[in-house]
């Protein structure tokens, strides 16, 4: 069963008079529960594809189906609801809300979903404990290391119980140790929660963990390889 299906996606950007190809007839089918890395050099279209899959940006043409929902035709409000309830995001720069504590950052998305205060707090504490941040839930982002912040960002992404987590260069700002820990966490969550992971990266450390590596170049899929030897 497909977690997300992209068919013939095209996207161009305009920079002054120059036209840049973001996606050039990209078709991709990602099965539920898979662990996929989108790789390629800067400007290859990884982030553009990730944004399109996450409903953050619209393709110029083509269609995207998340589960059983075609998302490229949804309006902004429907896309916001879709992102809130079915997709989790992990960004390169963590992007936590600086004035909220780790727990409040995790609770924030749940509050938007309408989860009650008690359940929110309990779930947030449980998720933070699962990712190894018990005891740090009251700290604000500035009081956490980069790796810890990225873990909180992951906790925020999984707290809403999404079907799909999209991670854009999640290890780019992390040292080697933290990057390894994060990837092990991703693998754990993928296995335990059956969440589909799609990561845009050019970090070879990440690629080692992916069970499928899709390589992009100039907005096109250059290769699509299954890697049974991925680190478990």
């Amino acid at each position: 069963m497909s977690a997300i299906h992209c068919r013939d996606l095209c996207k161009t950007f305009h920079q002054g008079e120059e036209e840049i190809t973001g996606l050039d007839h990209v078709s991709l089918d990602i099965e539920a529960g898979s662990f996929v890395a989108l790789v390629g050099p800067s400007g290859s279209g990884k982030t553009t594809l990730l944004n399109a899959m996450g409903g953050l940006d619209r393709p110029d043409s083509g269609e995207i189906v998340l589960g059983d929902t075609r998302i490229d035709t949804l309006d902004q409000g429907e896309l916001a609801d879709l992102r809130l309830n079915r997709i989790g995001f992990v960004f390169q720069s963590y992007n936590l809300v600086p004035v909220l504590s780790a727990r409040e950052n995790v609770e924030f998305v749940m509050q938007l979903q309408g989860v009650g205060a008690q359940e929110r707090a309990a779930r947030a504490e449980a998720v933070l404990a699962e990712i190894g941040l018990e005891g740090l839930s009251g700290r604000r982002p500035a009081e956490l290391s980069g790796g810890q912040q990225q873990r909180v960002a992951v906790a925020r992404a999984i707290a809403s119980e999404p079907q799909l987590i999209l991670a854009d260069e999640p290890t780019a700002n992390l040292d080697s140790h933290s990057a390894t820990q994060l990837m092990e966490l991703f693998v754990h969550l993928n296995r335990e929660h059956k969440v589909t992971f799609v990561m845009a990266t050019h970090d070879t450390r990440v690629m080692r963990y992916a069970r499928r590596v899709v390589s992009l170049q100039d907005g096109r899929i250059e290769s699509d390889q299954r890697t049974p030897e991925a680190v478990e």
Binding site: G77, A80, L82, L84, F89, V97, R156, S160
Partner: peptide, 16 residues
Amino acid sequence: TREFGVMLALGLRPQR
């Protein structure tokens, strides 16, 4: 602006 962009990405509606 960047922070608001992240919030929108997480599913917050612009009206909120």
